[in-house]
Design a binder for these strands. Structure first.
Lengths: 334, 334
DNA sequence: TTGTACGCGTTATCAG
DNA sequence: CTGATAACGCGTACAA
């Protein structure tokens, strides 16, 4: 068994409260007894029981982080940045990977509450009802994607997906592409939704047709991007350019193209969000919009911490994004 | 404030213990009072305080997972698999990314103990002294890399790195490569160490020279692999084949080669451990040894759980690895 | 079937 | 300067 304050107290013949005072540097204690306590603590290799302490003090040093898929390069970088910032502030993370499942997300959410977390940073899955079930105000910051249908106020940090998507689409058009399809995610995800809307808006603005058969629905997995594109190839239905709503589906799409000997960008263009892979074996980056992961993480952490100080104060932040001029489209005008 | 058992008890005019019994389905309670309690619990949106419960019951449902770098595809997959298995078993994870820092690892370790985790799964950084500082027996399973210099027994799961490295090297030689260099990690890491030893052993077995200038020391980061290879290129000192001890440095190496227009595998070969990137944009995999991530994760989880039941029972497991015939070396004999 | 009393490990208040 | 005592939220042996 682990040593407790009581063990130390008995060891040195003092009261538990005195031992506590020594170990917390609170209150006045004679130097000799102090030394005795410190020695005993070391001897018994005492470690405080944080759970007991936080139960007593009604505090918590744990933050829950819920993300849909940690193997997605965007989310894993988000996780790492959040972890680093929180560590500096003396908090640590209960890690929750939902595999894009709303049910699992909900279960994790309940669990985090039971575990008494000081706050939650969540990149919600589609149709996330996390927040709706809530009666009391829990310190919850949403990232990347907004909760599904709620009248309740909440904190949120992301980029302006609508504007970013329009800008990206315009760049593709400016490069001379006309026949563009989009692989989108679940439209109940606000980020996917806005990216699709931005795509359609931009086509309309350019007086280009925007029929429904240019929209393909993926599920945020590699396999889905792969299969959609493979089907396009088999049906001899490849467009000039493929716009995937996120990096994972773009990677899947790329793999399908490569498998069938379709060259990028020579034969077909490919763009997406967050296609920058700093670890990419060949240093290849997919042209598109890049979200400022570090800044998003920092903002999310700040929001959670601020919410702890002044609960019920919600904020909303849309950070500037960047256009990454990668190697997956070419200028067809030249 | 969150509702407690006491709140419910007052609400329905019962004792706290009766309420507890209802909510835990323990002991006999009249159906009407049971219903009253359930209603009140729902009305007050009661959630149990797990910390208090576990403090009382002297249990814990949390496992600490310490890894050196979550952006490494090997570790992130390990993390995800561990999370999934633990979730099934009713545990969750406190996430600890040490950035390859021993100091940080140690701090995390202390913290996990203070947080009362039921066990720890750790892929230790080089010269990890985690374990040595320990007087009592903590439920700690090592993965991938063994603790540095200790007489104490411990649980461990990995592959046979020595044998795997010899096999990989032999394959490279069999493919006709003669001038091979190795990018290794810190030799106090047992995995790096064994991979290097395997490399050297195999060279010797083939009566090939194995001078020190064939060994380059990286630090497990992308940048290090990149810089080492870039320097080789600038010094016109490229070998026939580069053997990187892990995937991240291999990716760095690949990027450097690509940047300078060196073709793989036409101009130079490249092999490593865990070079399989299921998400790789172009579906390209680096030839080499692949560790069975899922099996390692499962074994680690099993060990932690078993250690909870029968403490002090250590086990050691080396799982079968695979050779991945990727696209980064060619047969020079043909 | 229900309530009382106690303790998990800590901190804080109040006496002395 | 030090030591009882209570309380955080919960579960359980014991008593009724």
């Amino acid at each position: 068994m682990r040593a407790t304050l009581k063990d130390i107290a008995e060891e040195v013949g003092l009261s538990v409260s005195s031992v506590s005072r020594v170990l917390n540097n609170t209150g006045r204690i004679s130097t000799e007894k102090r030394k005795a306590v410190m020695d005993a603590a070391k001897r018994l290799s005492y470690t405080p029981n944080v759970n007991a302490r936080e139960l007593k003090k009604q505090t918590s040093s744990t933050i829950g982080v819920i993300i849909p898929d940690v193997t997605n390069t965007f989310f894993v970088r988000l996780l790492k940045c959040i972890d680093h910032r929180l560590w500096e502030e003396g908090y640590n993370i209960i890690f929750c990977d939902t595999d894009e499942s709303v049910e699992r997300e909900m279960e994790y959410y309940q669990l985090l509450k039971e575990k008494n977390v000081a706050g939650i940073i969540v990149s919600p899955a589609s149709r996330s009802m996390i927040y709706e079930s809530e009666t009391q105000n829990i310190n919850c910051v949403f990232v990347d994607n907004e909760p599904y249908m709620t009248e309740k106020p909440y904190s949120f940090v992301s980029i302006n997906n609508l504007q970013a998507s329009m800008e990206l689409t315009q760049r593709v058009i400016d490069a001379g592409y006309r026949d563009i399809i989009m692989i989108t995610g679940d439209l109940d995800e606000t980020s996917s939704n806005q990216r699709l809307t931005g795509f359609q808006n931009c086509l309309r603005d350019n007086h280009m047709e925007c029929s429904q058969d240019k929209i393909y629905f993926g599920d945020c997995h590699y396999k889905s991007g792969f299969e959609i594109v493979e089907r396009l190839i088999e049906n001899h239905n490849l467009p000039e350019c493929i716009y995937a709503h996120n990096n994972v589906e773009a990677f899947g799409a790329y793999a399908a193209l490569r498998k069938h000997g379709v060259r990028v960008p020579e034969d077909v263009g490919l763009v997406c969000f967050d296609g920058e892979d700093p670890m990419s074996p060949q240093g290849l980056s997919i042209t598109g919009i890049v979200q400022p992961v570090e800044e998003i993480a920092e903002a999310a952490v700040d929001m959670v911490l601020n919410n702890m100080k002044t609960p019920g104060k919600y904020s909303r932040k849309l950070l500037p994004y960047q256009f990454l001029d990668g190697q997956t489209i070419r200028n067809k005008n030249e």
